[in-house]
């Protein structure tokens, strides 16, 4: 079995963001980078499937500048066999169709049976890449997967819908699955596995060679939303803050009456 997991490197969402000088994206300086949270679940599921199959080969793919290799090393330490880094300093400007097209061209002749990815990225949040990849390569795609099973060539999953309802669906390989938070418990790489990962194949090649589509959209401007209806902000000593809040709750709500 051949498995592919596609990951993205994103800034820590708790970062102080700044807009870049062209006003088209966030400034990439002074940010802490990590694996997109949804993709951690995708990597874990891919590793679990590899372990279940025994005889399987698992590739982790990531598009971006050289710094994304650090995030790829985490995926290798979690259990991926090899890394395909598609080098692209402009990846933040690429719209979902361009990203999906690059991955599709990479994957086209490699006969992956199962492709995992996160259901969306934490920064751009489009949630399109997995679905588009499935459309381009004519593979079935199930999104928002919250439970995954594979038995006798059949993929059985649950999709998370609204209000806690799940839809049970099945499909066959080859298939793309986009992973929702809570699908599994992503493992922490152990020290021996981190050491082992250093010896694993991690090849870089230019993403531009694989880009076969024209962009259909771009970012005109990026900005901080206007703060609307921001209420009272309380700062200071804990003892004063609790008194102030209790006073407000008494005045404005019936709760402490």
């Amino acid at each position: 079995m051949k498995i592919l997991v596609c990951i993205k490197q994103v800034p820590d969402m708790e970062s102080k963001f700044k807009v870049n000088s062209e006003n088209t994206w966030y400034d990439s300086g002074d940010l802490a980078w990590r694996m997109n949270e949804y993709d951690e679940y995708a990597v874990e599921q891919a590793v679990q499937l590899k372990e279940q199959q025994g005889d399987a080969d698992l590739t982790v793919l990531c598009i971006g500048p050289d710094r994304v290799k650090e995030t790829m090393k985490k995926a290798l330490a979690m259990g991926c066999d090899r890394g395909a880094h598609l080098q692209d300093d402009e990846s933040h400007k690429r719209e979902p169709l361009e990203i999906a097209s690059i991955i599709a061209e990479y994957a086209r002749d490699k006969e992956f049976d199962v492709v995992f990815t996160g259901m969306q990225s934490q920064d751009r949040g489009s949630g399109q890449v997995g679905v588009l990849l499935g459309e381009i390569l004519d593979m079935s795609c199930v999104t928002t997967v919250i439970e995954f099973g594979f038995e006798a060539g059949e993929i059985k999953v649950k999709r998370e819908l609204e209000g806690g309802v799940k839809a049970k669906v099945k499909t066959t390989t080859p298939a793309v699955l986009t992973c929702q938070l809570g699908l599994n418990t992503p493992r922490y790489p152990t020290l021996p596995n981190i050491m082992k990962a250093k010896k694993k194949e991690l090849l870089s090649s230019p993403a531009a060679d694989l880009l076969k589509v024209d962009s259909r959209q771009n970012t005109q401007t990026m900005y901080f939303p206007e703060k609307k209806g921001v209420g009272l902000v309380l700062e200071g000593e804990i003892a004063d803050l609790t008194d102030e809040l209790i006073k407000i709750l008494k005045e404005k709500t019936g709760v402490l009456a």
């Binding site: 963001f17 966030y26 259909r216």
Partner: peptide, 13 residues
């Protein structure tokens, strides 16, 4: 963008 910390206007071509 980024958990609603930022926003962007999108130009469709």
């Amino acid at each position: 963008v980024c958990n609603a910390k930022l926003r962007r206007n999108v130009k469709v071509t």
